[in-house]
C-alpha cells in the first residue's frame, strides 16, 4: 500500500461514517474530519456522506459554516464524492423537508418514490451508466433511500436505475461524483468505483 493519502470526510450527521472510513482505509486513503471550514473548500479530496434527514444535514452544514465552502469547491470542480443523501443535498430541495433549501449546485428537487412500491428502496439494484461516463460502470449496487432525483442536470453524466420508473443513480462531472447508492457498501463493484474516484481525484490508491 502506498502512503496513506488524506481524504476529508464531512461528519454530516449522527449515523454511521464507519463504513465510509473503512472502505477508504482499505483503498489506502486516510479519512479525516476538516479542521476548519476553509478545508471544506480547499481539501484535495472531500467526501460528503449522507445520513439522516435532508433538513438535519443542511442545518448541520450551515451551523458548521460548511455550506458556502462546499458550494465553492463544487463550483470549482474540486474532487468531491457525495453519497446517498449527499447527492440530494446538491439539489435545490427535497420533498422530505419542504421549505429547506439545498446547496442548489444542480437544478431539481428530490421526490419520494411512489407509494405503491415498498419504500425505502432498500437493497441491490442495477445501474446503467450513460456511455460518456468515465467513473461509473454497470453493476449491482446497494441502495437505501426513500427520495431521489428523476432528471439529470445539464453538464453532468448520469447513471440510471429503475424502481417503478427511472431515477438518477449517480452523477459525475470530472472528479465530482455523486452516488444515490452506497459505494462503500457495494462490495467489489463499490470499492472499484471508489478506487477509480480516488485515482481521478489524484489520490494514491493501493
Amino acid at each position: 500500500m502506498s502512503g496513506a493519502s488524506p481524504v476529508t470526510v464531512l461528519p454530516t450527521g449522527t449515523a454511521n461514517l464507519a463504513s465510509v472510513h473503512a472502505a477508504l482505509r482499505r483503498l489506502g486513503a486516510e479519512p479525516r474530519a476538516p479542521a476548519a471550514p476553509a478545508e471544506v473548500r480547499d481539501a484535495e479530496r472531500l467526501v460528503l456522506p449522507g445520513v439522516g434527514t435532508f433538513a438535519a444535514a443542511m442545518e448541520r452544514l450551515a451551523e458548521r459554516g460548511w455550506a458556502e465552502p462546499l458550494r465553492a469547491r463544487l463550483a470549482a470542480g474540486r474532487p468531491t464524492l457525495a453519497v446517498c443523501l449527499g447527492l440530494q443535498l446538491l439539489a435545490e430541495g427535497s420533498e422530505e423537508s419542504p421549505g429547506v433549501a439545498g446547496l442548489a449546485v444542480v437544478p431539481g428537487t428530490a421526490t419520494r418514490f411512489d407509494a405503491d412500491l415498498p419504500v425505502p428502496h432498500l437493497g441491490w439494484n442495477r445501474i446503467e451508466p450513460e456511455p460518456e461516463c468515465r467513473l461509473l460502470e454497470g453493476a449491482h449496487v446497494y441502495f437505501a433511500h426513500s427520495f431521489r432525483l428523476t432528471t439529470a442536470p445539464p453538464g453532468w453524466r448520469a447513471a440510471w436505475c429503475d424502481y417503478g420508473g427511472r431515477f438518477v443513480a449517480a452523477l459525475e462531472r470530472g472528479a465530482l461524483l455523486a452516488c444515490q447508492f452506497h459505494p462503500e457498501l457495494s462490495s467489489a463493484a463499490g470499492l472499484a468505483l471508489l478506487d477509480r474516484w480516488l485515482r481521478a481525484a489524484g489520490g494514491a490508491s493501493c
Binding site: S19, A22, G190
Partner: peptide, 10 residues
C-alpha cells in the same frame, strides 16, 4: 468494529 473494517456490505 472488527467486522466493519473487513466488510464492504451492509
Amino acid at each position: 468494529r472488527g467486522v466493519r473494517a473487513r466488510l464492504a456490505l451492509p
